[in-house]
Design a protein around this nucleic acid. Sequence first.
DNA 1: CATACTAAAGGTCGACTTGACTCAAACGAT
DNA 2: ATCGTTTGAGTCAAGTCGACCTTTAGTATG
Lengths: 237, 237
Amino acid sequence: MTNKAVAMLRARALTVTVDLAIFTVRQHELQTLLVRRGNEPFRGVLALPGGFVRPGEGLDDAAVRELSEETGVNGRKLHLEQLQAYGAPDRDPRGRVITVAYLALGHGLPAPQAGTDAQAADWIPVASALSSNVRLAFDHEAILRDALERARSKLEYTTVAAAFCPEPFTVADLRHVYEAVWAAPLDPSNFRRKVTRATGFIVPTGQFRTPEIGRPAPLYRRGNSQVLFPPLLRSVA
Amino acid sequence: MTNKAVAMLRARALTVTVDLAIFTVRQHELQTLLVRRGNEPFRGVLALPGGFVRPGEGLDDAAVRELSEETGVNGRKLHLEQLQAYGAPDRDPRGRVITVAYLALGHGLPAPQAGTDAQAADWIPVASALSSNVRLAFDHEAILRDALERARSKLEYTTVAAAFCPEPFTVADLRHVYEAVWAAPLDPSNFRRKVTRATGFIVPTGQFRTPEIGRPAPLYRRGNSQVLFPPLLRSVA
DNA sequence: CATACTAAAGGTCGACTTGACTCAAACGAT
DNA sequence: ATCGTTTGAGTCAAGTCGACCTTTAGTATG
């Protein structure tokens, strides 16, 4: 398949790939999965996981497949949405390659397995990946920036943040997600007031979780609402 | 170019097109530009304007070019943004065609010119185009729905609505845009309060426009702000 | 057993925003 | 001068916001 794809590239035909910005929250920090490329171009450089769209394969299907191949996670069990297409003519030195970028949000994602095209893959803090001393292959830095901004704004007016939390979860778990993605602390009391007021965001299970220290926290499950009203706006600071 | 593209299609190679959902406000109504297809497939059926991405041509460049070809409007003078890619394997009966959809917002767009691939093109109310008794080619109805929803939500938290208004414009002009896109009436007084309070949305020119009847209205220009804070949320009704 | 510590949950407060509404101001037409 | 129409300013109650404080419920420690 790789040989055939490269042959198509060499023939100057137009090819389409999918690339994934996979986000998860670990240790109160937003992390993304990056692979170190094993082949030219950009051999040894960090890149978003991805690959060629196969003939007869839908874009979403290709994203699910790549997600499964790179992380071993069933892509239909976490939030996956298309970001947009990137198609600058010179974005890939091999020829004309248009990529469709996807945004994936998950929780407890396992340590990744090295794929066929990747020497190694690992979780890396998003702040590090976007810092000036890390270079990403192709236009993946721009894609990652767009994905981060999309994720941040999605948290404002949708309930996707719950996709980061393994069920059942506490209000504090949910708040840690917002704090990690927005990279800003939130007032625990005000946060709970807004989250519990919004209908269909979280529903109580009746169960409690007793932490090592502190008062036990009620456990919640995801509600059936996709949109969040009123929205949880980021502070203007 | 069309011959070459069709040849590529016949060879079962993967091709990429751009399709445009172009919105404008005419007679207090949101309208979109649709073409009646002159070629198979879907000959005689309404479709979004669009065409093949040329070799070495960027996606945005292709969208600008198609916009210019179909409407005669310089695409760089109005708001144009990518919606997303659509790539279901069976979305085009000719073979594997992935399309990148764009959303264009403009004002005073001229009567369109029939392109090479289109018998005729005309402005059609969006409500009619999405009604059950109008069928669109390919998956263009889904694309149009997504574009409408994108436009509606963009009005909430960005200042793109001003892109619909020829400069200079009045607050009422701007309000008519919101009313047309959201298909809901707005309170004139409350609308002006929010619009003038948001910094960088509109700036007064000092000029006035005297209508046929009623009090003269101050004229405004677009401000330099892209985001709208606080956002102008749609009512939950 | 009492106390300290921690986190959850709930309440208070002023400042601000919202939608619904009223009323004055500024024009043309009659 | 009066009317109709549109703009624009203001009012008011209800709600939301961030900031802050207090109470509650658990563990750990003396």
